[in-house]
Design a protein around this nucleic acid. Structure first.
Length: 636
DNA sequence: CGTGATCCCG
């Protein structure tokens, strides 16, 4: 009974070797399969040895299984058990091979064991041996070993086995050998419509995407006439991963036209793309699809939905949905806190952070990014410092470059340029271009030329060919009145063909996304849009609005072309929204750059004179324009 | 006694 001391609630099989041992299946086998802890397992192992049950190959295999591939595995213990087996059968060989193939430290040890297995008087490897071996090679990028084992598998006749082939394809794609992987598909003996063939193609598509060869991936995808729902999910996720959000959403549509029903993973995969596009209508559709099709909104899908509502401008919905979700997962919290930060609701973000702590959930570094971002947008410098310190001292989290980015941005915009620069100089890693951009853009507003000149030098070194950096540099020198430096930057841009990022805004109307660039005349209703713009300008002028063309005159505008600010993309998008939606309907616009000062004033007035809520998400945050005011309180 | 492809917050 001493053995029971450490786990009194568990029931052990009887130690007596009398009548009960006559039953056909040894009780130890069942108990082993349900065993949860390693301590308890060692007791069972001891019992199996004591009772002689260990000589039963099934019991021995199960003992090895637990030591080798259960969650609390112990590889050296497993190897000891394996080496003490008198004549391990092929199941046990496969188990120990798999155990090492999944290890982080010595995956190739699986191959060493395999070499032992190749001796004549031992069992022959079977189709279950090879998937683990290829995984082992993939983990170690051991392409030469992989090739040789590939030959063995083919010689033994496993060229029709789906699992052998898919794992082999995985090995080749993970090693970047797309040609070899492709040959495998071409010469495979798999049935065209079989599941294994779909898996094989999915692996290949994933391989092309990993190498950035998205058009090869898409071509292969289009050629598949036996796509599984996983094939569709994969394509959607890969597009999203590469920032091709429109394409992701497009595939999501086409899959449904093809008659394939989206499942849980489809929704989780497509939501981030919808979020980035700010397509609230489509996001709501996904939400109701989940409800109608009894797809459970758990913490993962729930977090994706909370993120979507936040990024699509409906922070109230995000909060409402959050309340109904399980709250053990830090991702659920960071989705909400990140959303609140985007909307400038810093006090709410901090409030939820405290609730998270009270709920006993350990915050991740992403949660802190949300909190710091919120403090930065609201100018809460003291609070920002408190949470930055708390992250390090209370939670032992190392600040990443993004955290420093938030802090530098927060300090700079609050006018504390010297303090910001001190932080940059003392941070524990090399500052990147994002950091110097934050510093430099604030130097212009707060008139700190010395700090700015130093930041500009660093920026030119770090990002010698980036368009947005040069715009920033030009802005900065222009604010100093240093026209020679401005000319120099512009000459450099011309010589190196460095271009500004084209400004782009989009607005969804009736489920369709309408995209506008600066001075864009390509939309079918462009004539009406420009008449509307002129009407708006006239109406605003009566109210005393004077367009602020300074940016244009100084040639320091963020937009693509040096044009009249009246044709900035967000103004075009809003004009289009006004003529294509019912009076009183809110307008939701997404923009890829920061809103300029003139557009900000313009939209404030439009919200008042046209009686519309205008919700604009720019590169860093939301602006809710209503009745002549903006939610950012002009601090952005 | 058993192996493959899709999955939330930066």
């Amino acid at each position: 009974m001493l053995l029971l001391a450490s786990s009194p609630t568990l029931t052990l099989p009887s130690l007596s070797t009398s009548s009960s041992s006559s039953s056909s299946s040894p009780p130890t086998l069942l108990v082993l399969r349900n065993c949860k802890s390693f301590n308890y397992f060692r007791q069972l192992h001891a019992i199996a040895i004591k009772t002689g049950q260990i000589t039963d190959p099934l019991v021995a295999a199960e003992v090895l299984r637990f030591a080798a591939i259960s969650s609390g595995r112990d590889l050296s213990y497993a190897l000891k058990i394996f080496d003490e087996m008198p004549e391990p059968n092929i199941f046990s060989w496969n188990t120990i091979i798999r155990a090492f193939s999944e290890s982080d430290e010595t995956p190739l040890h699986a191959v060493h064991i395999y070499i032992r297995l190749l001796h004549n008087d031992l069992p022959k490897p079977n189709q279950y041996s090879y998937p683990s071996l290829f995984k082992a090679c993939a983990r170690d990028s051991a392409i030469e070993e992989g090739r040789q084992i590939h030959c063995h598998a083919m010689k033994l006749g496993f060229f029709k086995d789906g699992f052998v082939l898919t794992n082999l394809a995985r090995l080749y794609t993970l090693c970047g050998r797309m040609e070899d992987a492709r040959k495998l598909v071409k010469r495979s003996f798999l049935q065209p419509g079989s599941e294994a063939n779909a898996v094989l193609h999915n692996i290949l598509i994933d391989g092309y995407c990993r190498l950035g060869m998205i058009s090869n991936a898409r071509q292969l995808f289009d050629e598949m006439n036996f796509k599984s729902v996983i094939s569709w999910n994969g394509m959607i996720s890969r597009y999203t991963e590469m920032g091709l959000f429109k394409e992701a959403v497009d595939v999501f549509y086409v899959m449904q036209v093809d008659g394939v029903s989206p499942n849980y993973v489809t929704l989780v995969g497509v939501l981030p793309a919808i979020s980035r596009l700010g397509a609230l209508g489509l996001g709501k559709l996904v939400h109701s699809y989940a409800a109608k099709n009894e797809i459970e909104v758990d913490d993962v899908l729930g977090s994706a939905l909370v993120d979507m509502y936040g990024k699509c401008g409906s922070i109230e919905e995000a909060i409402h949905l959050f309340e109904a979700l399980p709250k053990e997962n830090p991702v659920t919290w960071s989705s909400l806190i990140g959303g609140l930060a985007l909307h400038g609701q810093a006090h709410d973000a901090i409030h939820y952070f405290h609730m998270m702590e009270q709920a006993g959930v350990i915050p991740s570094d992403v949660v802190f990014l949300g909190v710091l971002n919120a403090c930065s947008h609201a100018g809460l410098v003291d609070e920002g410092k408190v949470y930055f310190n708390r992250m390090v001292t209370n939670y032992g989290l190392k600040p990443r470059i993004e955290h420093y980015g938030c802090m530098v941005d927060m300090l700079s915009r609050a006018g504390l340029l010297e303090e910001a620069e001190e932080l940059v100089n003392n941070m524990s890693m090399k500052p990147d271009d994002v950091i110097y951009k934050a510093l430099l853009s604030a130097c212009r507003i707060h008139d700190k030329p010395e700090v700015g000149v130093r930041a500009a030098k660093h920026l030119l070194q770090l990002a010698p060919a980036a368009g947005d950096c040069h715009v920033l540099l030009s802005n900065f020198y222009a604010s100093l009145g240093d026209w020679e430096a401005v000319a120099e930057v512009r000459l450099r841009m011309k010589k190196l063909d460095i271009r500004k990022n084209p400004g782009c805004s989009w607005i969804a109307v009736d489920g369709r996304i309408n995209e506008f660039f600066v001075e864009d005349y390509s939309h079918p209703r462009t004539r009406e849009i420009h008449l509307m713009l002129e009407e708006m300008a006239g109406k605003l002028n009566e109210e005393g609005y004077v367009s602020d063309n300074t940016g244009v005159l100084l040639k320091i505008d963020e937009e693509e072309k040096d044009s009249m600010v009246l044709y900035h993309s967000e103004k075009i998008a809003v004009a289009f929204g006004l003529i294509s939606t019912k009076p009183g309907m809110p307008l939701r616009v997404i923009k890829n750059l920061r809103v300029c000062g003139d557009c900000h004033e313009f939209l404030k007035l439009v919200s008042k004179l046209y009686g519309r809520r205008i919700i604009v998400r720019d590169r860093s945050r939301f602006h809710h324009f209503e009745n002549g005011c903006c939610s950012c309180k002009d601090y952005w």
